[in-house]
Design a protein around this nucleic acid. Structure first.
Lengths: 225, 225
DNA sequence: CGCTAAAATGATTGCGACTCATTATTAATG
DNA sequence: CATTAATAATGAGTCGCAATCATTTTAGCG
């Protein structure tokens, strides 16, 4: 049947993509050999080029899929009936965890977006991914949970920038996910609320996380009145 | 004279580095040809390899010099007799401006640090550069201008992460430096302004208890709205 | 000068991405 | 089924470029 034929083609394309993801993850972009990818996908080297124009194209496809799945995961990780702040916390936690787990693919991503003629370029699927943040933030602003005095794009850059740099640090130190990072980043967006109550802010603690608790209590307390 | 000889060698090395910086900036890492670099430095292709082991080595040297100069610029950009907050503002301004101006070299930097075996790796000179932030922040904490409840490395990641992402956005939109970004980032650090009476606090509970508390607080908070 | 070591050269090599003439497979048709 | 056209797959061969190295040039010194 024509249907089976089509499925076989899709299966081949998929096999190549899977093989490419594995090899790129293991060896990095420069270390990855097209011959090795073809071998693992169980196709001839020339066949790869029937499905992907060149190595960079294949790289983009791998990265694209990664972020598409990450987007789905992010949406799934967010509870429906909760505050924007809590959703932001869930997103931050999911994002940081993902970055740490697949940091190599994150690095490869920046590689895929590099074109000497168009600096700073982001892949479409990455742009799609960050919309998750935008949606939460917009809702938080609409419901006056967040203040709208800073443009969303700036908050987005703070959010993703902080988390990526934090992930890099944690990966570098071979630490796992550090929840205090998440709380710290979330805290950045509660700035103004906490500030309003700052006159009764207690002295600092020697342990960083301690303040996280105090701040959460402050937020809760402010909501009760 | 031996002195003249040495100077000639250094001049050659310098010429190669300058040529490499130009070509890499114009064509990107993959687009840059060693032959072109040699040509511009007015040496034979083989000569380049007397000074730099290979292309990646040359790339690292270019990036290394860039960040060394940036470090000097940052130190110069900071006033001596002012508050830590103001110094932070000056640093943020200088950093963002530099990132925008030389964004290509920033992208190339991440490329230079990529090694498939050691993810997240940062070049030594970049590590040196971020010390400028650390010094300011440490002083701010010592003088109780900032609170010490968040580890410096987390603040550093917030600072540089936010600014790099913001720079990317601004470059992408072909906007120039946006001072509101600087103010926004600085604002993040005024969050935890210290109150006059910051004294000792008892150490926190065990990690297990701590996480339980955080999660319980999150649940409670989410139910309040 | 002549001699030696250091420096520079560029033709040559090796590797790996990509091509393309050839072969194999599938679908269509009588 | 046999025949044929169209589509898919192959892998030996091409080509571009980083890196090498046998050869030549230059510098230092008595």
């Amino acid at each position: 049947m024509a249907d089976t034929q089509r499925q076989r083609l899709e299966a081949r394309e998929e096999a190549i993509l899977v093989a490419a993801t594995a090899v790129l993850g293991e060896s990095g972009v420069d270390g990855a050999r097209m011959a090795e990818i073809a071998r693992r996908a169980d196709v001839a080297e020339g066949t790869v080029y029937l499905y992907y124009k060149n190595k960079h194209d294949l790289l983009e496809a791998v990265v694209d899929r990664f972020w598409r799945e990450l987007t789905l995961g992010a949406i799934a990780a967010i509870s429906d009936n909760t505050t924007a702040t809590e959703q932001l916390r869930e997103l931050a936690h999911y994002h940081l965890q993902s970055l740490i787990t697949d940091f190599k693919l994150v690095e490869i991503t920046s590689r895929a977006g590099m074109r000497h003629d168009e600096p700073g370029r982001q892949l479409p699927q990455v742009r799609e991914y960050v919309r998750v943040f935008d949606a939460i933030m917009q809702r938080g602003i609409n419901q006056q949970e967040f203040q709208a005095n800073t443009p969303i794009w700036q908050m987005r850059d703070v959010f993703y920038g902080s988390l990526e740099y934090s992930a890099r640090t944690l990966v570098l130190r071979a630490q796992g996910l550090d929840k205090s990072v998440v709380e710290n980043v979330i805290g950045l967006f509660n700035l103004h609320r906490v500030d309003a109550d700052s006159d009764k802010q207690p002295p600092s603690a020697s342990i960083a996380d301690h303040d996280t608790i105090i701040e959460a209590l402050a937020r809760i307390e402010s909501k009760l009145s």
